[in-house]
Design a protein around this nucleic acid. Structure first.
Lengths: 140, 140
DNA sequence: TTCATTTTTGTAATCGATACAAAATTACTT
DNA sequence: AAGTAATTTTGTATCGATTACAAAAATGAA
């Protein structure tokens, strides 16, 4: 399943956003990397391919794409907000120890009818398996 | 349904937290005010009753009470994290225009079994009725 | 090309949040 | 009650993610 820049451009247009270079680059990166980068990590990766890219531009782009519901964000990480594609809505698990973020494939609850909801965020927080086993080592 | 400081102290002890003055004050404030204050708003209200209270202390207290699952936070407001009591778990609706936060009485989804989850956050985002009608006025 | 609109840039500044060590308070023991 | 250890609180200094803003560049239309 290959997604070209043209495909992404068309998808953005469909969502009502003009497919600028940076916007396509951000979406493409997120399609190819299923991590949940902070804006800074996103910038660090993209600037290698697009020298001269500004951190502010990445912030602007993320905001635009969140507004047009292409992206969603996970708030509350100490390192700053994390970015994810909004397609195939899913929940997230965040480890309070190491900050790792994992996708949880599950249906999101429907909001009450009378509310006009554009984004639903479901975040489970706790300790991931990895950090739990490290904790056990310390005790032993 | 009156809740005295003694009641709150006992409740905190039950949750494994020593009921310091500030901790009781924070819980009491949140029980009496069903708004969702930022740490700064919380501080502003409490400092009137406890002169000399430090903003840092409110931050410390909130962290302690979140760790011991007495409080929960709503992340992602531009004004900073908002604080709420963790009892009677419920969802939140946040208006992207005015930032207002409303409680939504509904069951929270159960996390997958294998995860050890200590906090579940369900946030609906959109435009509240108020801001929607203001928007209509502008159009007319 | 020319003009208007949109996007991007880059620096400066904002401001929520934290680090840290000293001071104050509390709990515990004798 | 006095002494001591542990906890809590304070307050300043600082960090760092995010934003403001205006200029520059790119894009699109006529």
């Amino acid at each position: 399943m290959i997604t070209t820049n043209v495909d992404i451009s068309l998808q953005l247009r469909r969502e009502g956003v003009r497919p600028s270079v940076t916007r396509v680059a951000v979406v493409k990166y997120l399609m190819e990397h299923h991590n949940h980068p902070t804006v800074d990590e996103l910038y660090a990766h993209l600037v290698e391919q697009y020298p001269g890219l500004s951190r502010t531009t990445v912030y602007n782009t993320v905001h635009t794409l969140v507004d047009s519901r292409v992206l969603t964000t996970i708030e509350g990480s100490p390192e700053g907000m994390r970015v994810d594609l909004a397609c195939n809505p899913h929940a997230h698990f965040v480890c309070d120890v190491c900050g790792a973020v994992a996708d949880i494939a599950m249906e999101l609850p429907e909001p009450p009818d009378q509310l006009s909801v554009t984004r639903t965020q479901l975040v489970f927080r706790g300790v991931c398996c990895n950090c739990k086993s490290i904790d056990k080592e310390k005790i032993n």
